[in-house]
Structure formats: structure tokens, C-alpha cells
Design a protein around this nucleic acid. Structure first.
Lengths: 184, 184
DNA sequence: ACCGGAGGTCAACGCCTGTTGGCATAGAGT
DNA sequence: ACTCTATGCCAACAGGCGTTGACCTCCGGT
């Protein structure tokens, strides 16, 4: 269990892979390019991760790290969630890589679906007035949050890219709040 | 200018291409597979469309066909827009193909950006209280409509897929209405 | 001093891709 | 009847891909 010397190489591969997958998507990100970025031989990637699919699975391992929404004042739930997603995305390309890849790769789509269903679903269920409607409410929140990520980081629609995060929070928080709390 | 016999082949290629691009995305949709679907030889695709890029450009040619929003009662703008996008998507895979491809293909992303900036931007500008804010409002509408398409047709998030279109309109129309009309 | 294995390099394989040029065929214009 | 051109098929090319196996080179344990 003591750290092996090669852990540094492992980590370098993973970092390069995340960047390439985020920038190019699954198909265009080649093992050769990832290996070149990490300054190692392509065959090392195979030795450590078995296959390109295995590497992607390791690189796309991630967590939304949602805060406990029951700690928050009810009327600020929307604001807290929107701000959290924006922070999460600006700092970490993993979710963008997953999003880009999920468009064409079945495994990535499955993973993404699981993350949002499980993690966002659980967080939302805890603060929703009617438990039976929790999944639908979580789905609506996901649609707006993922639409934001898509237009801002992938399509780079000018008005969305140019709007500073603080303004985005102002606009989107009421939407999310309504999806969570509006009476059915 | 009279119709040539080969126009049927041209159309068959285009139909098959749209289906493959929508189902598989740009990279995974191979010219060989498209040609097989259209029951012709791969080289025919090249003869008619020059290259895979050219074929995609032809297949991704499309129009949002937005109605004239100035004809609509102001308080129903959200409902009309949401319903229109849902109708447009259920019947035509072209936009889904473009969305799937835009995740990894620069040209498709550019096209998508242009379509939403120009067409949705123009439609929105006509019904917005403050012209200076029109692009931002259009961007917000785009983020929710594209988020809906992404979660419903690409990721297939269960709660979004299971919600019937009429209920989606009920939930999303107020959001779109607010993005269009809320005072800044 | 020896050895065994982990970390790393190299060249190559088989496959699939977009793309090309040559060749057959049939039908319209003369 | 004869050409000419549009239409279509076939075989092949070059390049890039994921993946493999043989080899080299250290270094810690005995």
C-alpha cells in the first residue's frame, strides 16, 4: 500500500487524459496524443489502464460534491445550487470532458445519467415538498444546469459566455428555485 | 434545371446521413455505413458531396422555423416557444445530429452557434422590453431549450424522458417567459 | 555478487477510415 | 447505329488508430 514510484506517471497520464478528453472528446483524443502530453510511451497507457475505455473510465471518475441542501435557507436553494455548479465547472474540466464525450459514447452517457440521477436526485429529494415529484424536479434542474454547461463551455454561445457568473446566478437561481419548490 | 434521375440517390444519401449522424455523431458515423444504408457505393457519396465534411454540411442544413412571436399574446410567449421546440425535435432528427456532433466538431458547433444567435436572437429581439438585453435573454432561452434537448434526447435522463411534452410545457414555459420578459 | 521484477522504450501488427481512379453500363441526342 | 455523358461499382491506396510483445535498464532484497 506504500506509494510506488510510478504513481507520478499514473497521475500524469490521468491529467493529460482529462485535458485531451475535455478539449477533443473521446474519439478525437488519441492515446498517442495523451501519451505525448504526459511525455511517456503510448504502451504505458495500456499497461496502466488496460485500454482506452479503461483510461476514460478512470479519467471520468468524478463527484458533483453537492453541499447538503438541508443546511441552506429554503429561499436560497436556487442560488446555492447555481453557484455551486458554476464553481465546479470553472475549476475542473472533468465534467466538460464527460459532457463532450457523452454525446457520442454510450458508456459516458450512462455514467453521466447515473451521476445526475443519484447525486443530484438525492440532494434534491431532501429539500422538495413532495417526495413523489423529487425525480422530476431533479430532472428539470439538471436540464437547466446542463444546458448552461453546454452553451457556455461547449457551444460557447456569445451571450452566455459573456455574462459574468454573478449575473448568471441572478438569472438562473429563480428558475432552479421554482423547479425545486413550486407547488405542482 | 429539370430533375435528374440521380436526385433520388442524392436524397437517399442525405436521409441516411442524417439518421447516422443523429444516432452516432460525426466521428462514429462512417461514410461506408451511410452508403450501405442508402444502398449505394461509398464513392457515390464522395462524388455528390465531395467529402465527409461536405456531406455533414448538407445534412446539417436546417432552420428552427420559429413562428413570428409578435403575433402571439405576450403572456403566452414562453408556452409557444417551448411547444415549438418540442414539436421541432420530436419530428426531425437533424437538430439532434447537430447537437451530438457539435460536442466534438468545430464546424458543427459554429453552425449551431450561428443558428441560435441569428434565428432565435432575431425572434427574441422582437418581443423583448429592452433591446440592449435581447442577446442575453436569447442566450438564456437557448440554454434551457438546449438543456432540454440534451437531457431528453442525448443523455435520456429518465425523469425528463418520462415527462410527457404537455407537462414539460407547463414546467418550462414560465422559465422561458421570465427570461424573455422579466425586468432586469 | 547475484537475481528478479517493475518501469520504460521500440517497432510492428491488424484494422478501419476517408478518399481516389479506373472500368462497366445504360439511355438520350443525333 | 453511334456516340457521349451521367450514373454506378470495384479495388486499392495511404494514413491513423488501438493494441501487442519483445527488449532494455535500473534498483532493492538476499
Amino acid at each position: 500500500m506504500t506509494a510506488r514510484r510510478s504513481d507520478a506517471t499514473r497521475a500524469a497520464i490521468l491529467t493529460a487524459a482529462r485535458q485531451r478528453f475535455a478539449a477533443d472528446g473521446y474519439e478525437r483524443a488519441t492515446i498517442r496524443a495523451i501519451a505525448a502530453d504526459a511525455r511517456i510511451d503510448p504502451s504505458m497507457v495500456m499497461r496502466y489502464y488496460g485500454s482506452k475505455e479503461g483510461l476514460f473510465a478512470a479519467a471520468a471518475e468524478f463527484d458533483l460534491r453537492l453541499p447538503d441542501l438541508t443546511d441552506q435557507p429554503t429561499d436560497q436553494l436556487g442560488e446555492v445550487l447555481v453557484r455551486h455548479f458554476l464553481d465546479r465547472w470553472e475549476g475542473d474540466g472533468t465534467l466538460i470532458a464527460l459532457l463532450r464525450t457523452a454525446a457520442t459514447n454510450q458508456g459516458a452517457a450512462d455514467r453521466m445519467r447515473a451521476v445526475f440521477t443519484d447525486q443530484l436526485g438525492a440532494a434534491v429529494a431532501a429539500v422538495v415538498p413532495d417526495p413523489a415529484q423529487a425525480p422530476r424536479r431533479a430532472g428539470l434542474v439538471a436540464s437547466q444546469m446542463l444546458g448552461l454547461a453546454l452553451t457556455r463551455y461547449v457551444l460557447r454561445l456569445p451571450p452566455v459566455v459573456d455574462t459574468p457568473p454573478a449575473d448568471l446566478v441572478t438569472w438562473l437561481a429563480p428558475t432552479v428555485h421554482r423547479y425545486l419548490r413550486a407547488p405542482t
